[in-house]
């Protein structure tokens, strides 16, 4: 997966453009189901960026959990509530007189542009090489050559030693979420039956 350094910017630019365009497509596509599918494209592009950062395990997890797991569940949920007005939500928003959509858009654009400008300023004003020296990452290339193929093993070791408590907390959280989702759905079924009776 180690690419030649002169050509490294081409896949980066392609994947970066794909992720940003697909995210924008998620926001601006008039059809809600298609918006969900463009989001899959954005997540796959970000997984490609993880491959470029030598994070193979995270990249595969990104595809499995985000692109296939979360987004497909969201698309299923969209299809379960697919009224016409729900699917073509943007044109309905524009027709809605009560909603002051233009003011909201202009405000959001100003806020986002300002935040982006601030973040870019902070990123470019920082001397990252000095920080890399402090964190001990200045021998970047040699260490990478040594360790890039053992990252998955490294993640497994750290997760069961240094990060054991967060790891177990995550498993408890997932169990609680499972029970909580069942309770949320089941309660509703009971009230539906009561309404029918």
């Amino acid at each position: 997966m180690e690419l030649l350094s002169e050509f490294r910017h081409i896949p980066f630019l392609l994947l970066a453009t794909a992720s940003v365009v697909c995210s924008l497509g998620m926001i601006f596509n008039p059809n809600l189901v298609r918006a969900g599918f463009t989001l899959i494209g954005a997540f796959v592009a970000i997984a490609g960026l993880y491959f470029m950062l030598n994070a193979n395990f995270v990249a595969i997890s990104q595809i499995l959990i985000y692109a296939v797991g979360i987004v497909l569940v969201i698309i299923f949920a969209i299809m379960l509530c697919s009224l016409k007005e729900t699917v073509n939500d943007i044109s309905n928003e524009e027709q809605d007189v009560n909603l002051d959509i233009h003011t909201r858009r202009v405000t959001a654009l100003i806020v986002c542009a300002g935040l982006f400008a601030l973040l870019v300023y902070v990123i470019n004003s920082q001397d990252w090489n000095a920080i890399a020296v402090i964190t001990g990452a200045e021998m970047h290339t040699t260490i990478l050559e040594q360790f890039s193929r053992h990252y998955t093993e490294q993640i497994g070791n750290l997760m069961l030693s240094k990060y054991l408590i967060p790891f177990e907390l995550i498993s408890i959280l997932l169990l609680l979420v499972l029970v909580g989702v069942i309770i949320l759905s089941k309660k509703q079924l009971d009230t539906v039956e009561e309404n029918k009776a």
């Binding site: 970066a16 992720s19 940003v20 995210s23 924008l24 998620m26 926001i27 809600l32 918006a35 969900g36 989001l39 954005a42 970000i46 960026l49 985000y66 979360i70 987004v71 969201i74 949920a77 969209i78 729900t86 939500d89 943007i90 928003e93 809605d96 909603l99 959509i101 909201r104 858009r105 405000t107 959001a108 654009l109 806020v111 986002c112 542009a113 935040l115 982006f116 973040l119 870019v120 990123i123």
Partner: peptide, 30 residues
């Protein structure tokens, strides 16, 4: 990091402007 900042701003824009709860959820994922 600039790409990350750009994606964050795109997500915040979607979160603020969209009135559909599913789109808001997907913006949070971005």
């Amino acid at each position: 990091l600039t790409l990350s900042a750009l994606l964050l701003c795109v997500g915040i824009y979607g979160l603020i402007t969209r009135n559909n709860a599913f789109r808001v959820l997907m913006s949070i994922e971005v």
